[in-house]
């Protein structure tokens, strides 16, 4: 499903060169649920961004479904992100000016051939799947953190991506809400066979995943 081969990521400025990732080799199979752990600054989020095609590695190859995507154009990367990948962020990144249902519809806006009524239907179904069908016309600011993260998950899954990338999805939530979000992610992984890659600091949540990848100073240590 996801193949990373010899991934390097170096941030260069005029004076400083910062190595974020060194020789990362990772394969994530279809339907797997893995977590990436490591201390702050170890390169977890950078790795997730590289997998999610939000960041381009300085070296190495990224392949999704056996297709190398490293050299894709901006437009093609956008299309792959839209069709194959869903993102869940620690700080939710909901658009506060849009209602819950409008936020969830966003990925479908960039997909061709979907009518507005179809879009609305799919968004409502996604919200139903995360247990938020009663709040569709609320605005993000009117929801609790846990509810906002559910909206973010609904947005991530509305286009039925096969890969879900979650960057510390429980990091801004209390333990009870965090557990609820983990249950949603587990449910998606088990019931829909969605591949989930989650960055987390929390060993308790990492234990719930099938495999833990550990990073230290940009190197894969397990």
């Amino acid at each position: 499903m996801i193949q990373l081969e010899g991934i390097e990521k170096v941030y260069r400025t005029e004076r400083i060169e910062t190595v974020a990732l060194t020789n990362i080799n990772l394969t994530v199979g279809e339907g797997e649920f893995i977590s990436i752990m490591g201390p702050s600054g170890s390169g977890k989020s950078t790795l997730l961004n590289v997998i999610g095609l939000l960041d381009v590695p300085t070296g190495g190859k990224v392949a999704l479904n056996s297709k190398p995507v490293t050299s894709y154009s901006d437009r093609n990367l956008a299309r792959v992100r839209n069709e194959e990948i869903g993102f869940v962020f620690q700080t939710f990144h909901l658009i506060h000016d849009l209602s819950v249902v409008d936020n969830v519809e966003i990925p479908l806006l960039y997909r061709k051939g979907i009518s507005s009524s179809e879009r609305r239907k799919l968004a409502l179904r996604a919200l139903d799947r995360v247990g938020l069908h009663a709040r569709v016309h609320h605005f993000p600011g009117q929801l609790s953190g846990g509810q906002q993260q559910r909206v973010a998950i609904a947005r991530a899954i509305v286009g039925n991506p096969r890969i879900l990338l979650a960057d510390e999805p429980t990091g801004n939530l209390d333990s009870q809400m965090g557990d609820e979000i983990m249950d949603v992610l587990k449910g998606l992984n088990e019931n829909e066979k969605t591949t989930v890659v989650m960055v987390t600091h929390d060993p308790r949540q990492a234990e719930k995943t099938e495999r833990v990848v550990r990073l230290f100073d940009g190197r894969q240590v397990s």
Binding site: G52, L54, D74, R75, A78, R79, R81, N82, E83, F87, H93, L94, I95, I106, P107, L109, Y110, R111, R155
Partner: peptide, 16 residues
């Protein structure tokens, strides 16, 4: 900027 990031993450190209 945040909105731009979200839209890009979910499939908006620069031209969109």
């Amino acid at each position: 900027a945040g909105e731009i990031g979200v839209r890009k993450a979910f499939g908006a190209s620069s031209w969109t």
